[in-house]
Design a protein around this nucleic acid. Structure first.
Length: 840
DNA sequence: TTAAGTTATCTTTTT
DNA sequence: GATAACTTAA
């Protein structure tokens, strides 16, 4: 190809400046001239510039809904169309496989076969691809295992137990978080130890944990998620010649969601875009690597061009080490970088955007950016305050039905929440109302125990030195190998310098019972036999071809040989039936994999499985409502969005309160949620929220106050919400007409919106604090029975359930719960503080 | 060694 | 309210 890098001094805009006016009138066909590529159809001037700019470094600040993905894909297409790049010279990096798949699809739609050879993938899968190829350089097996967080946890747990480190206050979680954080900063145990205060015994202990953790992973030829990035950076830094090959190959790097990159990812991008020094370039040429037409006047290969897209307002992964300074410092890191701002929003109505702007405006320390839309105000945001999480779910479900009967497809609606635990109530109600839905993420398929078991068999075959996988399957299904035998094998291996697998093969030397020894040997033989199946086809002495099996054949062999599936099928536990079905689903997936990747081996399958993310299996074509966390919602958009649980303690989440920058990050999360909506946005909250099986009072989120009152139409505002909840809230809440008096409540009469309901005139009920304004003034004060004392044996009257007898009172303070046997309504648990009850 | 039963702890968000 | 972690019985 010709010299694409000259473009630096001759940006496309100048070469093409002859036809700016025509560009603006595109759409009326006939523009066969190359310069008026249809790639620019329907783009605004900033977007066009972002597509066409040719230079060393480009930063696109893309507000929510500003057409970022479209710009990015068209930019890739444009690079090819103008012959500034070959497909193989492009590396586009996203955060999720889903985003990568979408981009690949869109690029393919524009270019067809021309997109072959391009790398469009996540940070993690790009790194795996590189690392598998170069594994031997850094002392890894090319079939290295990838440990997910659960695997890391198990490993850390064993280490902590062996070191008695829990006496120093270490848990697998705390140690893991700290190690992850350090790895994201590209530190290892040694570099950390150099700067640590080693007179602090806790620090000494941590360093030891870190060391052993690294050692175990190494011994198992395994990498955790953080290592995938870190080791790639290490590889490039330690082996300049290897790095040079990739720098030569990838001439155009595009990184999406740049605001969410952590230091390691930043460093990786930096390594990939560095120039190759003249001497090294010469060496490569001498080695027969084709680099001549890439070299500049000095003989060096200039750094690849870099395009990053981001929006610091949507940075929601600081907890994972994301550093927005990567984006704010971009112009410093890449001098001469071009910055393009995309502010026009093509997604949402102005009302939604105004709410979003107002909310995010409360974050200080940000460059002001105002999203605007030419699409009109649209509907108001709907607010709803429910009595309980269940009630809230019912509201969501009802509104979904309303939208659906008004013609909106289920797939255009989504329900968001802060924590995965919130799905339970939603699912319950959606099932009951026969609403088709799917939970995106959450307890993922591949995290199920039985799936991890089956995969562990495959991993043990692919990577025989992986002790973790072996120990997982050692007694799964049960074959009489207990923990004692397991540790025995492990220390036997350590003492004799063997791997766990070798120890298994030599287990006869341990002097265990014949039954146990037999079981161990049988497992070892099974795995060995499976490994042989994978060796490429060859012919035995008597002419029988063997080997060359694909993934599903090996998996089926292992399942049959181990009895894993048979045991589940024969079990009397009804849940095991579902487990067996899951394993069969896994088998089906391996068959699909074989079909889609005829050349793909076992390791490829395992890699794919290890790196699938929550949002990945999101199938837009399925006609279902999507349920997901706010985090997985990033990058997606829906006609209607239900943002649930907008409460203090949930959004912002309790845990964020103590973290520096926590509340601001939570606000961005809220902002991300709001900006996913195209037409309709619903904000809902509950006055009580169940967690850990008991019920807590919840207060409206502080962020609600930040939205101008006139943008929200409260079907039931936090102030006026009555407390008719429980099992029959529908008829009572009377929200459809927007009024609250349907049940003889005297709310409007008293003018204070207190939640005392129709019982307010009766004695024994302390009046709620009078409230004055409600519209959107969130005070969080709800009914307060305050000091109402109840003891077992008391008779009470409930507004909805009638009279009953208190059996028991549990909990303390505001969380006291009365267990009541109602005369007609049955047994209920009530939160005394807010329940519409009185003593009689 | 396993199965069954009991208790403690837990939850933020994810590649 | 679910799961991991622990106890006890067989």
């Amino acid at each position: 190809m010709t010299t694409p890098l000259n473009a630096e001094s001759a940006p496309a805009s100048t070469t093409r400046s002859a036809t700016p006016i025509i560009l603006d009138s595109i759409g009326y066909a006939g523009m066969g001239v190359r310069e008026q590529s249809p790639l620019l159809d329907g783009l605004n001037p900033q977007q066009k510039e972002a597509v066409e700019y040719r230079g060393q470094a480009l930063l696109i600040i893309a507000g929510a809904g500003s057409g970022k993905t479209s710009v990015l894909t068209r930019r890739v297409a444009s690079l090819l169309e103008t012959r500034d790049a070959w497909p193989s010279q492009i590396l586009a990096i996203t955060f999720t496989n889903k985003a990568a798949a979408e981009m690949r699809e869109r690029v393919h739609a524009i270019l067809g076969q021309a997109s072959d050879g391009m790398w469009i993938s996540t940070f993690h899968s790009s790194c795996v691809r590189i690392l598998r190829r170069e594994a031997d350089k850094i002392g890894l097996s090319s079939t290295f295992s990838i440990y997910d967080s659960a695997d890391s946890r198990v490993t850390l747990k064993r280490i902590i137990k062996a070191l008695d480190a829990d006496t120093y206050g270490f848990t697998p979680g705390s140690a893991g978080a700290k190690i992850s954080k350090l790895k994201n900063e590209l530190a290892d145990a040694d570099s950390y130890a150099r700067n640590a205060n080693m007179s602090d015994p806790q620090e000494v202990m941590f360093v030891e944990i870190f060391r052993q953790y690294s050692a175990r992973l190494r011994a198992a030829s395994a990498l955790d998620f953080d290592d995938l990035i870190g080791e790639t950076v290490y590889l490039f830094r330690a082996f300049p010649k290897v790095a040079a090959l990739y720098r030569r190959r990838f001439r155009h790097l595009l990184v999406d969601e740049y605001q969410d990159t952590n230091h390691a990812q930043y460093a990786l991008v930096h390594e990939l875009t560095r120039p190759v020094a003249a001497e090294l370039a010469q060496e490569m040429e001498d080695d027969g690597v084709h680099v001549r037409n890439l070299r500049d006047a000095t003989g060096a290969i200039p750094g690849a061009s870099l395009t990053v897209v981001g929006d610091s307002d949507q940075s929601i992964y600081a907890f994972r080490g994301a550093d927005t300074r990567n984006i704010s410092g971009f112009e410093r890191d890449y001098p001469g970088a071009k910055v393009i701002l995309l502010e026009q929003n093509y997604r949402s109505t102005q009302n939604i955007l105004s709410a979003a702007n107002a909310v995010i405006g409360h974050n200080f320390d940000r460059t002001d950016k105002k999203l605007w839309s030419a699409g009109g105000d649209g509907e108001k945001i709907i607010g709803y305050t429910a009595y309980s999480g269940h009630d809230e779910a019912q509201f969501v479900s009802d509104e979904i039905q309303v939208l659906h009967s008004a013609g909106m497809a289920y797939r255009d609606m989504a329900v968001f929440y802060r924590t995965n635990a919130q799905t339970r109530a939603l699912e319950e109600i959606l099932v009951r109302s026969a609403t088709p839905y799917r939970v995106v993420g959450g307890t993922k398929f591949y995290e199920r125990a039985e799936i991890k078991d089956a995969l562990a068999y495959l991993i043990a075959v692919a990577n025989p030195v992986d002790e973790l996988a072996l120990r997982r399957i050692l007694n799964t299904p049960k074959r009489g190998i207990g923990p004692a035998t397991e540790t025995g094998l492990s220390s036997f291996a350590d003492d004799n310098g063997l791997t766990f697998r070798q120890a298994m093969r030599n287990s006869a030397a341990l002097g265990l019972g014949p039954k146990v020894t037999g079981a161990i040997l049988k497992l070892a033989e099974l795995l060995d036999a499976a490994a042989l199946m994978l060796v490429p086809t060859r012919v035995t002495g008597d002419g029988v071809p063997i080997g060359g099996s694909n993934v599903s054949e090996v998996l089926e062999f292992l399942l049959a040989g181990s009895g894993l599936l048979a045991v589940l099928r024969g079990s009397r536990d009804p849940q095991d039936e579902a487990r067996a079905e899951n394993i069969e689903e896994l088998v089906a997936q391996t068959k699909d994999f074989n079909k889609e990747n005829p050349d793909g081996g076992l390791v490829d399958f395992l890699t794919q499985v290890s790196l699938v993310a929550a949002a990945d299996d999101l199938d837009d074509a399925s006609g279902t409502v999507s349920l997901m966390t706010l985090h997985t919602a990033k990058g997606l958009e829906y006609e209607a969005v239900f943002l649930t649980g907008v409460e203090e303690g949930l959004l912002p989440h309790q845990m964020s309160a103590n973290e520096p920058g926590g509340p601001a990050e939570e606000r961005r999360l809220f902002y991300v949620g709001i900006t996913r909506a195209r037409q309709r946005l619903y904000l809902s909250l509950a006055m009580t929220r169940a967690q850990f099986g008991n019920i807590n009072v919840a207060m409206p989120s502080r962020y609600l106050q930040e939205i101008p009152a006139e943008l929200i139409d409260w079907k039931q505002s936090p102030g006026t919400a009555n407390s008719h909840g429980g099992t029959q809230p529908r008829a009572l809440n009377a929200r459809r007409e927007g009024g609250f008096g349907g049940f003889g409540n005297s709310l409007s009469g008293s003018g204070n919106g207190s939640t005392s309901g129709s019982n307010s005139a009766q004695a024994g009920l302390p009046p709620g604090k009078p409230k004055t304004e409600w519209a959107n003034k969130i005070t969080g004060t709800v009914r307060d029975n305050g000091a109402l004392e109840l003891t077992a044996g008391d008779r009470i009257r409930h507004h909805d359930f009638g009279e009953g007898r208190v059996n028991q009172v549990t909990g303390e303070g505001t969380k006291r719960i009365a267990h009541v046997q109602f005369d007609t309504a049955g047994a209920k648990k009530l939160l005394i503080k807010i329940a519409p009850i009185e003593k009689i």
